[in-house]
Amino acid sequence: MKNNIIPALRLTLVSFAFFCGIYTLAVYGVSRLVPESMSFTKAKQGYYENVGQPFTGDQYFNSRPSAVNYNAAGSGGSNKGPSNPDYLAEVQARIDTFLVHNPDIRKEDIPSDLVTASGSGLDPNISVEGAVVQVKRIAQIRDINVWIFRNILRL
């Protein structure tokens, strides 16, 4: 055992220099070559395309519920089990709220992603069905023809 300690220590230090130093710097160096359109950079408008934001106003396509309120410095999911009664009551409440804001929508058209929290709490996407059920509300508030929206969504 004794004969192994010094080589073990030295090998660890060499590995540290190589994997934490050289490997990281090599990846860092390559990442500088990434064209801006493909890399993780801020858009001109001042936000990150990949990172979801909370959209709760009726004039926006609402984003998915988030267990961390879209805090991108502490992301996380709800970790609620599928049979948890409190959780199921919460989902039911979200459905009811959605129907209040979108009175023309039938309940069976609401897709589950709009009333369940994502894994990261930062999901930047909603499903196409989730967008479709919100079109009428936004069109009314913004006074835009529904068909323009439908075109944008390519339906």
Partner: peptide
Amino acid sequence: IQQNRGSMEGKEV
């Protein structure tokens, strides 16, 4: 409600 996309709690779209 509609669950065409499956169980979405804790999942990403």
